[in-house]
Amino acid sequence: MQNSTFEGPTAFAQLIRDAVADAAAQGVREMVWSDADFFDWPLCEKSVIDALNVWANRHRRLVILAHNFDVIPRKHPRFVEWRRMWGHIVECRVAKQWDATEFPSAMWMPSTYVQRLDPARFRGIVSNDALGVAHLKEALNEVHKQSSPGFPATVLGL
């Protein structure tokens, strides 16, 4: 597979499920997820959390970039619990200065990526093209540079 296109929310969700499962099976050391709010990612599904548990058991790193994390506690409670347990390997960042409609929607790994080029229509690309992987990583690094910590693993109260 070099480049393959996808269209529709069902195809997108399945690609995310498959990518997390592949990351666990292949021992991928780092993932970067980016989305305006992760509303339509399958983060509430048990199969995704199970795959994340397998993936996280070895020294891993997950960077999550968002315009905001408001949706995640309401829509993805299983993921919130997983995040609490694995907070030491998960870095969540907020980049509010980016327009939510322009925020990159992608899942990056060192050898492949899934990217929604048109999030409203769920159209995008899945690719293992080395140049594409590098360009997406550069773009996500730029978002990271312009972001600040967000979505803490635990909330301390008084």
Rank of each mutant, 00 (worst) to 15 (best):
H88M: 11
D118R: 08
V126M: 15
D99V: 14
L140F: 08
M109D: 04
W86S: 04
V126C: 12
G150C: 04
W82M: 00
G124A: 01
V155K: 01
M107G: 10
V80T: 12
E81K: 14
A139D: 12
Y113I: 12
E91V: 07
A153H: 13
I125C: 07
L136G: 06
S148E: 15
S111I: 08
K96D: 15
V133W: 03
A120C: 11
F103H: 03
A153V: 01
E81D: 03
R116Q: 03
F151Y: 05
V126D: 12
P152M: 04
S105A: 15
S111F: 04
P149L: 03
E138P: 00
A130Y: 13
P119F: 00
L136S: 07
A134T: 03
P110W: 06
W82I: 03
A106F: 08
A106Q: 03
T112E: 07
K96R: 13
S148G: 05
R116Y: 06
V80D: 02
T112S: 05
P119S: 15
R123V: 14
E102G: 13
K96N: 13
P152E: 11
A100W: 10
E138L: 14
R123M: 14
D99A: 09
T154N: 00
E81I: 08
A153M: 06
G150H: 11
L117M: 03
R121V: 10
T101F: 03
W98M: 10
S148Q: 12
S147Y: 08
C92R: 09
G124V: 02
T101K: 12
K137C: 06
V114K: 01
L131F: 13
F151Q: 03
V80W: 02
L117N: 02
T154S: 04
K96T: 12
S127M: 08
N141G: 15
R116H: 09
F103P: 04
Y113A: 01
E138Y: 13
P110C: 05
D99P: 10
Q146V: 02
V126P: 05
E102T: 14
G87E: 04
S127Q: 06
E102F: 13
L131E: 15
H88W: 08
M85Q: 09
T101W: 04
T154I: 07
A139V: 01
W98A: 13
A120R: 14
E91S: 05
A100R: 13
T101G: 11
F79R: 07
W108N: 05
A130P: 15
D118W: 09
N141S: 15
V114A: 08
H135V: 13
D118T: 04
L140Y: 05
T154F: 07
V114L: 00
A106I: 13
S127H: 08
P110I: 05
L156Y: 10
I125A: 05
